[in-house]
Design a protein around this nucleic acid. Structure first.
Length: 156
DNA sequence: GCCAACGTTGGC
DNA sequence: GCCAACGTTGGC
């Protein structure tokens, strides 16, 4: 089982939106970055756990937990000219983009802002806190996962 | 295959 | 709203 951090803009789709979905489940579509695509397609598995990260908001931070509940599958929204993330170059015969289904687990007892994550020596290696990082999904190590869950319990 | 121009991400 | 970082595109 692997751990992940997945970013979304709460104004567009935040943890509350996911929690409100039937069965707390939705597909995580719109990935249009090859590095991220490869991680999804090649490494994500049902049962993997993920941190729900709120980006482009004040302050950015980790809002809660979710679980990967499907195998990776073709992101069909890429074929739909009406869809927000339509990609005319993705051919149904040779699809470019993949997604997974995720299910809401819970909100964190408290929101953990990016500022605080940056202060933790244990998390210094995370892509998240490094400059210029643009991955919307990134792997999280076991140690980092445990450190973040501990921060939730510690309080600010 | 190079690389300048352009677009996007996302913190601030 | 700004802008640094960096991925993608397309002319050559």
């Amino acid at each position: 089982m692997a751990y992940w951090l997945m970013k979304s803009e709460p104004d567009v789709f935040g943890i509350d939106h996911l929690a409100a979905m039937p069965d707390g489940t939705d597909h995580w579509d719109g990935i249009r970055n090859y590095q991220v695509r490869n991680m999804i397609r090649d490494r994500m598995q049902p049962g993997d756990q993920a941190l729900f990260y709120h980006s482009n908001t004040k302050p950015p931070g980790i809002a809660g937990l979710m679980e990967i509940v499907s195998e990776p599958y073709i992101d069909h929204t890429a074929f739909d000219p009406e869809a927000k993330y339509y990609d005319p170059k993705s051919d149904p015969d040779k699809p470019r983009w993949y997604m997974v289904d995720v299910r809401y687990t819970r909100h964190f007892d408290r929101y953990i802002p990016l500022d605080e994550l940056k202060q933790r020596p244990e998390l210094a290696e995370m892509k998240l806190v490094q400059k210029g990082n643009r991955l919307s999904i990134m792997p999280v190590t076991e140690d980092e996962w445990q450190a973040i869950l501990a921060m939730e319990k510690e309080g600010a």
